[in-house]
Design a protein around this nucleic acid. Structure first.
Lengths: 157, 157
DNA sequence: CTGGTTACTTAACTGACTTAATTACTTGAT
DNA sequence: ATCAAGTAATTAAGTCAGTTAAGTAACCAG
């Protein structure tokens, strides 16, 4: 089984990395300014992750980077794109003007929720084929493996 | 939970995509010709997938591409790199000279096994924290989700 | 107010994929 | 026999998400 998992995981990774053009439609349907989404705009998983991370409230760039497991510059790019599309806004933290707080643009909270729903639905479709226990076990395994891969295997700390 | 999974999956994908320089050492230790692995050679998950796919015997490029879920040109590149490193060999299928059969280079079967072991060990470390039932459920969920993401969510066929 | 640190951005580059076009071979119809 | 169509692999060119390194602005301790 281990071999099959090792074979399957990267496939999942690639499949996951493909942009999801459909979600853009959802934006427009949900009332987003249509001009903000030019015909070829595509939303990558990273962008969705940013939107999800923001659901709990405004967030600094550094914090988002940590949540996503990517570098700060990469996060800056993700935020750039979403700002271009009018989904989110940057503003300075009044308490510490170095940090840039990222938050939904006014009225975009609902739109963001719908974009997330598209991906959620896709996932639910798969999870529905699992029992509750299986889903729980899957989640647990997912966390363990993500954690295990975060470390270089030789290091023990 | 769904949200957390949507947030976690791309992290896993990225973590998974990072090259694993350690495995090169394993090659050399296992007796691979050291010169075949220059200091900066790194083995990507795709390369390991090819090695795993070959474990069942020689394979055409097209078949490997299908197994990995990538295009044939991408597979050609992966094979190129592994041939450069002397891990595998190309030869023509005598039955149909269009197809290129890929197989381990002589004596590299064992080396390949060790490279795979490095990644396997990493995964086992995580799976050991799960019961057998949980591991089974994880595997099942993994397959379901990979399948679900392979389709565009709107299409029903 | 000066030197050091932190948060973010910019710039330049890399690697892994994609599609489109090419080459080499097979197959089946005339 | 040979020609047209189709398939396997490759080459070529371009894209995109990530990286590191360097730059800018703001905080803070002496």
């Amino acid at each position: 089984m281990v071999d099959e998992i090792v074979l399957l995981l990267p496939v999942l990774g690639r499949e996951l990395g493909r942009p999801v053009p459909l979600e853009m439609e959802a934006c427009v349907k949900a009332g987003a300014p249509a001009h903000a989404f030019p015909s070829d705009a595509h939303v990558s998983p990273g962008h969705i992750q940013v939107l999800i991370a923001l659901a709990k409230g405004p967030c600094s760039v550094g914090h988002i980077a940590h949540t996503l497991g990517v570098s700060r510059p990469a996060t800056t790019q993700l935020v750039d794109r979403l700002v271009e599309h009018g989904m989110i806004e940057r503003r300075h933290d009044p308490a510490d003007r170095r940090v840039v707080l990222v938050d939904y643009a006014p009225g975009m909270h609902e739109v963001a929720r719908r974009i997330m729903d598209v991906r959620r639905r896709q996932l639910n479709e798969a999870l529905d084929r699992l029992t509750d226990e299986e889903a729980g076990a899957f989640f647990k395994g997912l966390k363990e493996i993500t954690a295990a891969l975060g470390r270089v295997p030789g290091e023990e700390n």
